[in-house]
């Protein structure tokens, strides 16, 4: 087995996380915002797996499984909220939600 530099794994995860952050802050379509959140969660999981591989422990992979479960639950609730938003306002623009501030 050959070696992979530890910082390259972290670099990949950080770059994915930064791309997800750009998506979350730029997009106005709520579906894209949720997708960018998925990218960020996935990047976090990648760090755990890189750490698990570095120290040869399975604990990091367990944490990734927990993140996977969290992402599944989060997506289910988020998509239900998107459906409800679309039903009420006939749009996927997150800016219409600013009327919640009253």
């Amino acid at each position: 087995m050959d070696t992979i530099p530890f910082e390259h794994g972290l670099l990949l995860a950080s770059a994915l996380f930064a791309l997800g952050l750009v998506g979350v802050t730029t997009r106005r379509n709520i579906v894209f915002v949720l997708m960018s959140l998925e990218i960020m969660l996935n990047a976090t999981g990648l760090v755990f797996v890189v750490g698990s591989s570095k120290w040869g422990h399975a604990d990091g992979q367990i944490m990734f499984l927990m993140i996977l479960t969290l992402a599944a639950a989060e997506v289910a609730v988020g998509l239900a909220l998107i459906i409800q938003l679309y039903r009420r306002f006939k749009t996927v623009d997150i800016d219409v939600l600013s009327q919640l501030k009253g």
Binding site: F6, E7, H57
Partner: peptide, 12 residues
Amino acid sequence: SFPANSIEVTEV
């Protein structure tokens, strides 16, 4: 903030 190290890929 990255530490410079390398991963010996071991299959878990």
